[in-house]
C-alpha cells in the first residue's frame, strides 16, 4: 500500500511535468520506489530518431549510441513491432553479438534481469519501458508477477507524457471518459460496491470491469481508488 502511494505521487508529478526532465525525474523516483537497479524509457520514431531517459549511466547510453547497439540489442529486436511485455529471459541471446552485448552492458552496471514493455504510439512511434535489476530468477519472477500490470500501465503513462511534450501534437479524442465510464466512476465515488454499481447500471460485473479498467487507463491511474480521486480532482465526475 505504501508503495502504491509512492507510485501515485510519482505519476501525479509525471503528469504535471512540462518538460522532458520531468520524465527523467519520474524514472529516478520510480526506480527508488520499486527498489530496483534501473528504470529506462527509450523512444524510437519511424525516422529512427531516438530519445531516452532513465537511470542507466551516461557512459552506457553514450556507448550504446556510439556502437549502434540498437541493431543488435535483443530487447529492441524482440520488442519492435510487438505489443506484449517481455521478460529478458525469454529473448534470444544466443548470437555471439548478443552475448557480448549483454556482458558489456553488465560491466556498465546493467542488471541481469529485465522486464520490458513495448508501446506502439501513433505514426510508427515505438517506445520501450524497461525495469532492470540484479537478482535471482525466483526474486525476479516474484517482482514481475506482482508488478506486471502496474508496469504495463506506467510504461504507457511515460509514453503519453513524452508524446504530449512533442510539438504540434493533436489532442487524443480517445482519452475522454465515455458516458458509461463516467457513470461507473460516479457511483464508485459515492461509495457503491462493484456489485451495487453493476446492479444500478444494469450490467454484469464483467462488463463493469471493462469500464473501470478503461477509465483507470484514461485517467492515468494505477488502481480504482486512484482513478476515482483523479476523476473528481479533474471535475469529470460530480458527487
Amino acid at each position: 500500500m505504501e508503495k502504491d502511494a509512492f507510485l501515485e505521487t510519482i505519476l501525479e508529478r509525471l503528469e504535471s511535468a512540462e518538460a522532458l526532465e520531468g520524465i527523467q525525474t519520474a524514472s529516478e523516483e520510480l526506480r527508488d520506489a520499486l527498489k530496483i537497479d534501473h528504470v529506462a524509457y527509450h523512444w524510437v520514431d519511424a525516422g529512427g530518431d531516438q530519445f531516452g531517459c532513465g537511470t542507466y549511466s551516461q557512459e552506457w547510453q553514450d556507448r550504446y549510441q556510439e556502437q549502434q547497439y540498437l541493431r543488435i540489442d535483443p530487447v529492441i529486436i524482440g520488442c519492435y513491432q510487438r505489443f506484449h511485455p517481455v521478460d529478458w529471459k525469454r529473448l534470444d541471446w544466443s548470437s555471439k553479438a548478443a552475448r557480448q552485448f549483454l556482458a558489456e552492458a553488465m560491466e556498465y552496471g546493467i542488471g541481469n534481469q529485465g522486464f520490458s514493455v513495448p508501446i506502439r504510439g501513433p505514426n510508427g512511434q515505438f517506445a520501450l519501458f524497461t525495469s532492470n535489476h540484479t537478482c535471482s530468477d525466483e526474486d525476479w519472477a516474484e517482482f514481475t508477477d506482482k508488478n506486471r500490470r502496474s508496469l504495463i500501465l506506467v510504461a504507457h503513462y511515460f509514453n503519453e507524457k513524452a508524446l504530449e511534450l512533442e510539438p504540434d501534437r493533436a489532442p487524443d479524442a480517445n482519452q475522454a471518459l465515455s458516458p458509461r465510464e463516467i457513470d461507473a466512476m460516479t457511483l464508485l465515488a459515492m461509495g457503491y460496491s462493484r456489485a451495487q454499481v453493476a446492479d444500478t447500471l444494469s450490467i454484469s460485473e464483467h462488463t463493469l470491469r471493462v469500464y473501470i479498467e478503461s477509465a483507470r487507463f484514461k485517467l492515468g491511474a494505477l488502481n480504482t481508488t486512484h482513478a476515482v480521486a483523479r476523476a473528481m480532482a479533474r471535475g469529470l465526475i460530480v458527487v
Binding site: F83, H156, V210
Partner: peptide, 27 residues
C-alpha cells in the same frame, strides 16, 4: 490487437458500448 491502438470496437461499434472508446493496454 491492444485497444490502445486502432481497433474495430472503437472504430465501428462505439455506440454498442454506450458511446466513447474502450482504451487500455490491459484490454
Amino acid at each position: 490487437l491492444p485497444t490502445t491502438g486502432k481497433v474495430m470496437v472503437n472504430d465501428h461499434f462505439a455506440h454498442v458500448m454506450g458511446g466513447g472508446a474502450v482504451v487500455s493496454p490491459l484490454i
